[in-house]
C-alpha cells in the first residue's frame, strides 16, 4: 500500500448525497481480474454518455476543477462492498475523500488502499464546497499525523483509527500483521467452540 502522510491539493466538489458504489464503479466494469485501470470507469455513467462522449455537466469533465481531494456529499460510498470503488478513486488520482458521513465498508476499503476518508461536520463540508466552488484554486491541506484538514485558514480535526493511521503512515497492510500472528490464531482454533 502507498504511504500517506500529507496532501496539499486543489479539490473536486461532488455535493451529491448517498453516492453509492454502483455509481462510483458500475457492476459491468467489475469483470477484471486485476486491480489496475478502474480509474477510467470511475463514475462511468455520470461521466460519459452511452456513445462514450463526455457529459459536459459532470464535475470530472469540468477542467476548472482538479486535484487529489474529492469533496463529496453525505453518506458517500453506500451500497455494495466492492473494493473496486476505492481502487477506481485511487487509480483516477484521488488520495482523500472528504464527506460528512461515510458508509462503513467503503471506509474500510478506502483505508486499506491508501485513500484517506476524512469525515467532517456538515457545516465544515458546506463551507469547503462553497470555497472550492467560489475559487477552484483553493488548496486543501490534509495532515494524517496531526489528523487535521484545512483550507483558507479554516482548520478542523478528523478521527481515524489509531491502528489504521499507523498502517497508512507506513504503508502496511493488515495481511502482514495477521500472517505474523499465525501461532496465536492456531492456539485460538484449538480452544474455540467448533460447531
Amino acid at each position: 500500500m502507498e504511504k500517506f502522510s500529507r496532501i496539499v491539493s486543489t479539490a473536486v466538489p461532488l455535493p451529491n448525497e448517498d453516492v453509492d458504489t454502483d455509481q462510483i464503479i458500475p457492476a459491468r466494469f467489475l469483470k477484471a481480474t486485476s486491480r489496475e485501470g478502474f480509474g477510467d470507469n470511475l463514475f462511468r455513467d455520470w461521466r460519459y454518455n452511452n456513445d462514450n462522449t463526455a457529459k459536459a455537466d459532470f464535475v470530472l469533465n469540468n477542467p476548472t476543477y482538479s486535484g487529489q481531494v474529492l469533496v463529496a456529499g453525505r453518506n458517500f460510498g453506500c451500497g455494495s462492498s466492492r473494493e473496486h470503488a476505492a481502487w477506481a478513486l485511487f487509480d483516477y488520482g484521488f488520495r482523500v475523500v472528504v464527506s460528512s458521513f461515510f458508509a462503513d465498508i467503503f471506509k474500510g476499503n478506502a483505508l486499506g488502499n491508501g485513500l484517506l476518508p476524512v469525515q467532517v461536520s456538515d457545516e465544515y463540508l458546506a463551507a469547503l464546497i462553497a470555497a472550492v466552488k467560489a475559487d477552484p484554486e483553493t488548496e486543501v491541506t490534509v495532515e494524517l499525523q496531526a489528523q487535521t484538514i484545512s483550507f483558507n485558514g479554516n482548520e478542523a480535526s478528523f478521527e481515524v483509527n489509531a491502528y489504521k493511521k499507523e498502517c497508512m503512515l507506513n504503508g502496511y497492510d493488515d495481511i502482514d500483521y495477521l500472517v505474523s500472528i499465525k501461532d496465536e490464531i492456531e492456539a485460538f482454533e484449538a480452544s474455540a467452540i467448533t460447531i
Binding site: R82, D104, G108
Partner: peptide
C-alpha cells in the same frame, strides 16, 4: 458481513480480520 477484496485475501491468509466492534 460483507468485506472488500483485500479482506478476502486476509481471510484466505489467516482466517481472521481486524475489526472495530460495531
Amino acid at each position: 458481513f460483507g468485506i472488500g477484496t483485500s479482506q478476502v485475501a486476509q481471510v484466505m491468509a489467516s482466517q481472521c480480520l481486524l475489526q472495530t466492534r460495531p
